[in-house]
Amino acid sequence: MFYNLLSPLATDISLFNVFRYITFRSMAALVTALVLSIVCGPHFIAWLRRLKCGQYILEDVPAHAAKAGTPTMGGLLIMFTLCVSVLLWADLTNPYIWQTMLVFVGFGAVGFWDDMTKLRHHQNKGISARAKLAGQLVVACAAMLCLVFNDHYTSTLAIPFLKDVSLNLGHLYLPFGVFLMVAASNAVNLTDGLDGLAIGPTIVAGIVFAIFIYITGHAVFARYLLVDYVPGVGEVAVFCAALVGAGLGFLWFNAYPAQVFMGDVGSLSLGGVLGYLALLSKQELVLAVVGGLFVAETLSVIMQVSYFRWTGGKRLFRMAPLHHHFELKGVPESKIIIRFWITSIMLGLVALSVLKLR
């Protein structure tokens, strides 16, 4: 909004020229979302308590018994602060901003439906897996249709760390993009099992994709770094910055011991939009690197279920997802979280090295 209102005044008043810069508005969006989260957080948590939006704890994880009743659906705080920040600082005539918001809010709506179902039933059973998947597919398909009918967008898939090597998926790019968003959404959801565990890597991924998207939308940088240039997509860096700010603000209250949990409304929306950001930045496969922690958590569940069925009841891990395995081995929760964050930061740095190591 500020861009659309104030940047035209730059021709007469040079001070307003700063509103034309994506970098300035990105930093402003980050700070806005962060401050809004910290200011509104206590009131929001108190509101959730009044609504009795308490978390149900599985009996399989007795160490978490003390967390029963902690307010959930904190993802609504992330969604509110992020959306307000983006609406204030982004160019609202840019279609990529609205497409990204569609993915974020759409996946969040599916998560909200699931969270509300759990609260109504007073147990950890939300909507069916089929219904959840159907909702995710509808949002992902709508987002991909916006991309594939864009004249500036291509169906090529860049191969990380390899110079001038790409794969043209053609018509398969649409189902690939849908799979990427749905898979990322569910991967973040599986990771969200300890205080601050999911939001930490999400913040790292938001920073990484802010850089990638800014480069993708900058003709000179994109040509120099051998990245596919997509005109206009650089504006989404403002969204990425707002995501980082909202994530940091939420972490203020979600850090161990957590005052609030994000719920599916947070995890599904964050995961889905990370998948979409990877598509917009034309760094689809890099998502598996920067989001390596999410991949590991998801693979641990797949391996556990497969091994259980193959061996007729034996377990590969003490419990899946992976963070619960370490918990049952006696590693303190805070230590697991910090170590996973450190791993995520290292993976983020590896992902950024893709820009030069090819």
Rank of each mutant, 00 (worst) to 15 (best):
N150M: 03
L87E: 01
M144E: 13
F104M: 03
M73L: 06
W47G: 01
A65K: 15
F44Q: 03
K132A: 07
V61K: 10
L137D: 07
C53Q: 02
T81Y: 07
A143S: 13
P71S: 08
L145K: 10
V84N: 05
M101S: 13
A134F: 15
T93Q: 08
C53K: 01
F104G: 01
L48F: 00
I78Q: 08
M79I: 15
A65M: 11
T81H: 04
P62M: 09
I97V: 15
A129E: 09
M116C: 04
R50E: 08
M116T: 09
A66Y: 10
I38F: 07
I45G: 00
A63V: 13
N94C: 05
V61H: 11
A140L: 09
G74T: 13
M101I: 15
W98E: 00
C146H: 13
I38G: 00
I45Y: 00
F104Y: 11
G126D: 00
L145F: 14
L119Q: 12
C146F: 15
F104W: 06
Q55W: 02
R130Q: 13
A134Y: 14
D91N: 15
I127H: 02
D114T: 07
V86H: 03
G111T: 04
F112T: 06
H43C: 04
A90Q: 06
T72M: 06
N94F: 10
Q136Y: 10
G108H: 05
R49C: 04
A129L: 09
C40V: 15
I97M: 04
A131F: 12
P71V: 07
V61R: 09
G135V: 08
C83I: 15
T117C: 06
A66I: 10
I57N: 02
W98A: 01
Q55E: 02
M73E: 02
